[in-house]
Design a binder for these strands. Structure first.
Lengths: 209, 209, 209, 209
DNA sequence: TGGTAATCGAGACGGTACGTCCCGTCTTAAG
DNA sequence: CTTAAGACGGGACGTACCGTCTCGATTACCA
C-alpha cells in the first residue's frame, strides 16, 4: 500500500491471492460454508494448498477476507432525507447482498464456527457487528440532526435488534427481505427509537445487573 | 409362515437410545456442535456406531432430537398478569435454557448446517420457529384478552423480531441476556405491538408483495 | 442316526439344517469361501443367524460339513482291473467333483484358514487327508494283490504326491485335469511306486531323521 | 506454464514404503495372512492408511510384494554337480524359506484369495509359478547338459509335481520338509524325468486333448 | 545479467473421522 | 425350548480432508 511496502520481502503472488479468494467465494456460494474444503479451493484456484495455508491460518480467516470483499463499503451510505427511507435503503442493499452473493452463507458459517472459537468470535464482532452498528448509529445521528428524533441512547441495541431480525428472516424465513417484512421492520425500529427517546429510563425501574 | 406373520416392528433399545441422547447432549455442550463426533458419542454412550446410524440418518437429526429434549415444554407458559411480565419471564427462561444447557450451541450449529440443507431447514422451522411463534402468539393473545393491547395482526413478525434479538445477543454479544437487554427488548416489543395496533396499515403505503 | 436318536432333546430342525447346508454350498460355490458370509447364508436359508451359531461354532465348521456332503463316498471305489486305470478313474472323479461342485473352493478356503488355526488343521487332516490316503492305499493294495507291483512302503507319500499335483493344477493351473495332465500324473505315480519297490532303500544312503 | 512443465512423477517415500513392507511381513508372519489388517500394518509402520492404499490397491497386492522380497533370488541357483543334489539343495532352501520367514503363510493366503479373484490368480502365476518352473527347468537343463538325463519334454509338469508335493507337505503335513520327505520327493522326480525320457509317448495311447 | 532465496504448483505424508459391512451375542414374539 | 427376525457392541474397512512436509520450477530482487 504505502511507498515503502514495495520493498517488502514476502513477495505474495497477486494472481494466486485473487484466485484463492475468487474460488473460495464461488465454492462457499455454491456449496455452503460447511462444505467448503480447502483442497477444493486450492484445486479450483490452481494453487498449492500450502499457498493458502501460508497466507491464512485457517478456513475461517480466509472466508472472513472473502466476506469483507463482498460487502460494498457504502451499504449504509445513502441519505434519503428521512430515517425510514435510510433504513429501507439499508435493508434493500442488505437484501441484495445476501441474495446475490455468498456473503450470507459465509457469514452464517462463520458465526456457527465462532461458537466454539472465541478468537474468531472477536474477529467477527470487529468485522461485522462493529461496522453494522456504526452504520446504524450514523443513520440515527442524521435523523437526530434533521430533528426527526431526539438523540437516542440505545443505538447499539437498535442496531442489533435490526440485524437480528434480518438474520432471522434470512436464516429461517423465506430467505428474502420482502416489502412487507421491510415495512414492519422499519416501523419497529422507528417506534423503538421514539419510545426510548420518549420515556428515557423509566423512573420506576431500578437499574441493576 | 402363518397368515399373521406380520413384520414385527423394529424393537429399539431404550437404554441405548437414552445413552446416545445423553452423550450427544454432553459432548455438544462441552465441545460445540462442530466438534461433536459420532464416534465420540458412540464411545461415550457405550454403543456401536451402527446403532446411531440405524436410528438417525445423520448428526443433525440426532441433535435435533437432543435439542427437543432440552427445551422444557413450559418455556412460555407463565402468566404473570401483564404482557411485559410474560415477555420478561420468557426471556429469563430462555436465558437459563441457553446458559445452563447445550441447547444454544446445538441450535446454532443446526442453523448453520441448515444453510446448505433445505430438508434440515424445514425440520428446524417445525422444531424451533413454529413453537416459538406459537408461544409469542399466546402471550400476545392473553394481553389482548386482558385489554392491554388490541389484537395484533403481526404476531409472527413480533415473534421473529424477539427471537432474532435474542440470537444476536447470544451469538455475537455478551452471551447473556442481562437485565438491561431484557428491559430494552421488552420495551421494543411492546411499542412494536402498540404501534401496529395504533397505526394499522398506513393508508399512504401500497401493500404489495 | 440310530433309532434312539429320535427322542433326543436338542430338537434340531431338519429343514433348517438342510437349508443352511444348501445355502452355504450355493454361496460358497458362487462367491468363494472368503466371500461367504454367515449373514447371507442365514438370509438365503430363511433361518436366523442364531440357528447357525447354535449348531456350528464358526464358518469353518459349517463348511467342513458342507464339504463332507459334496464328496461322494465312492470317489475311489472303482476297480478297473489295473493300477493305471484305477488312478485315472480317481482323477476323473476328482475332476468332476472340483469342476461341478463348490468342493474345491471350499476345501481351499478351509486350508487357507487352517494355516492360522491348528484345530481346524487337525480337522482337515481327518476330513480330507486321511480319507484320501486310505483311497490311494487301497488302490495300491489292489495292484499288489493283482501282482502288478510289489507292496509299496510309501503309500502315504504317493498319495500326497498325487494330491499335491492335483491341487497345484486346480489352484494355479488351468483349473481342469485334462487328459494330458492325467496321463503324466498316472505315469509319475506308477514309476514312483515301481521305483520304490525296485530300489527299496538305496544301500548307499544313510537313513536318518 | 512453460513448455517443459511435464507432470512430475509421484515421489514415493522410501522410508514409508520400506516400513510398510516390513510391518506387513512381520504381522503376516505372526498372525497369518487372514488376520493381517491394513490398519495394524499402518499403525505398526507409523504410516497413514491412505499411504498404503495410495500405492497398493488391496491387501493381496501388498503381500505379493512382501512375498517377492522374501524369496531370495538364488533359491535354485546352486549347481551341486548332480540332478539329485540340485533338487535336494532347492528343497533345503525352500524349507528354510518357509520355516524361517512368513513366505509360506503369505503365499497360501494369497492362493486362497486368488480362488475368487482371477486377476490375483494371474499375478500369482507370474510371481510364483513361472519363476519356480524356470528354476526347475534350468536344473533339468543342467542335468541334460551333464548327460545325466535326456532332455525332458515335461519340465513344467515336473516342476508342478514337485511344487505340489512341497505344498501339500507344508499345508497339511508336518510343516517341515524333513530328510525322509526330501529323499522320497527327489526319487519321485528323478524317476518321473527318466520315465518320460525312456518311454516317450507310449505308442499304445492315443494322444488327444 | 546472473545468482539466489522465497514463493509457487503439485501432491505425498501422518492423521482423524467418516459411514458401511459383518462379526458373534442378545432380545423378542410366535409356534 | 426352538425358531426367524433383527438390534446390539464391536472392529475393520476403504474414502475424504485435514494441516504439514517435501520436491523441482519459477520468479523477482540484488549483486
Amino acid at each position: 500500500m504505502s511507498i515503502a511496502a514495495v520493498a517488502s520481502p514476502p513477495r505474495r503472488s497477486v494472481r494466486s491471492h485473487e484466485a484463492v479468494l475468487a474460488a473460495a467465494a464461488d465454492i462457499a456460494g455454491r456449496r455452503g460454508y460447511g462444505n467448503t474444503r480447502i483442497e477444493d479451493i486450492a484445486a479450483q484456484a490452481g494453487v498449492g494448498k500450502q499457498t493458502i495455508y501460508r497466507w491464512w491460518p485457517n478456513r475461517a480467516a480466509l472466508l472472513i477476507e472473502v466476506y469483507g470483499r463482498l460487502v460494498p463499503p457504502d451499504v449504509g451510505a445513502a441519505d434519503t432525507g428521512s430515517l425510514a427511507g435510510d433504513l429501507e435503503s439499508l435493508l434493500i442493499r442488505l437484501s441484495a447482498l445476501y441474495a446475490d452473493t455468498p456473503a450470507g452463507n459465509i457469514l452464517f458459517g462463520l458465526i456457527a464456527e465462532a461458537q466454539a472459537d472465541t478468537e474468531l468470535a472477536r474477529q467477527l464482532r470487529d468485522t461485522y457487528v462493529a461496522p453494522r452498528r456504526s452504520i446504524v448509529r450514523s443513520i440515527l445521528q442524521r435523523a437526530a440532526d434533521r430533528g426527526e428524533i431526539d438523540p437516542p441512547d440505545n443505538t447499539d441495541f437498535v442496531s442489533d435488534l435490526f440485524s437480528g431480525a434480518v438474520w432471522f428472516q434470512l436464516l429461517l424465513g423465506t430467505r428474502s427481505l420482502d416489502r412487507e417484512f421491510r415495512r414492519r421492520l422499519v416501523d419497529a425500529v422507528l417506534c423503538t427509537v421514539r419510545s426510548a427517546c420518549r420515556v428515557g429510563q423509566p423512573p420506576d425501574r431500578k437499574k441493576r445487573t
